[in-house]
Design a protein around this nucleic acid. Sequence first.
DNA 1: GGAAGATTTGTAAATTTGTAGCTTTACCGT
DNA 2: ACGGTAAAGCTACAAATTTACAAATCTTCC
Lengths: 149, 149
Amino acid sequence: MKTKGKTEILKEHQLRHTGSREDILAIFMREAFALSHADVEHRLPEGFDRVTLYRTLKTFVDKGLIHKVLDDSGEAKYALCKEPCSTDHHHHGHVHFKCTRCGLTNCLEEVQIPSVQLPKGYKTEDVNLLVQGICLVCNKKTASIEEPV
Amino acid sequence: MKTKGKTEILKEHQLRHTGSREDILAIFMREAFALSHADVEHRLPEGFDRVTLYRTLKTFVDKGLIHKVLDDSGEAKYALCKEPCSTDHHHHGHVHFKCTRCGLTNCLEEVQIPSVQLPKGYKTEDVNLLVQGICLVCNKKTASIEEPV
DNA sequence: GGAAGATTTGTAAATTTGTAGCTTTACCGT
DNA sequence: ACGGTAAAGCTACAAATTTACAAATCTTCC
């Protein structure tokens, strides 16, 4: 199964195909975890215009190409929308996991958010769940030190 | 039932009772929903020192007087801790709800976060759940228009 | 393939935001 | 009331974000 191309993704979201957008989109496609503004910036070629990055991230969010990932740091992070998101409706049923050790935030696509029963009168449209803790990778590192075979 | 006084709250958290803290605490007690840094700032008297606000919010979080409420906006919000929070351990098993209509974010103290089963190897330390949708108040307004008796 | 019109980008400058250092002021236990 | 100490009130800075505007780049339509 071939992954959707960048050109195709941009077109789907009614965005012009430009070099900057291609670069930024490529970064999101390459990394599996959620990226903050700074994360993206670091991965961009030296001297990439900062203003363009601000604008592009905003545009991508507005058009539903990427979505904001909640984070306790207060610093917004972004990740590609894998499920179809229209301009106005983001829909993300999966859990986000932030490792307190390595600091990376991932989408755990395979973990569904359990349904939540809200009090009468509330209407649910979207649910976001952020779990913080130690991720698989960091956990292994620790284990190999603290629990020798 | 009388609500706990500001003086009492500050004392409980080992904080000196000062004018600034009283002002800021009063704002949180007055508003039922979560407030961003900017929200608090706007409600403070003209000319209130910016730096003091930064420091006070930080102190309040550190001492467990208020807790961060995650928000999809990326902008951190804060709300009073109703459950007893010690200096080092915030414990918030409850759900946060953000209304897409009125934009307000509330703590639903009565709704517990269901436990989440993560893949093997992950270790959970903290869980945050944000539900977005239509709140009780906004829902009623709508209902009274769309579903006349 | 090229031109027109609209969008996007690059640049500089203005604003806003978050911190640090230091002095003065205000708490609070004794 | 006194004195040690925490907090407030500045000022100054660096970094982050936004704005304005002209130049460069897309798209569409001949």
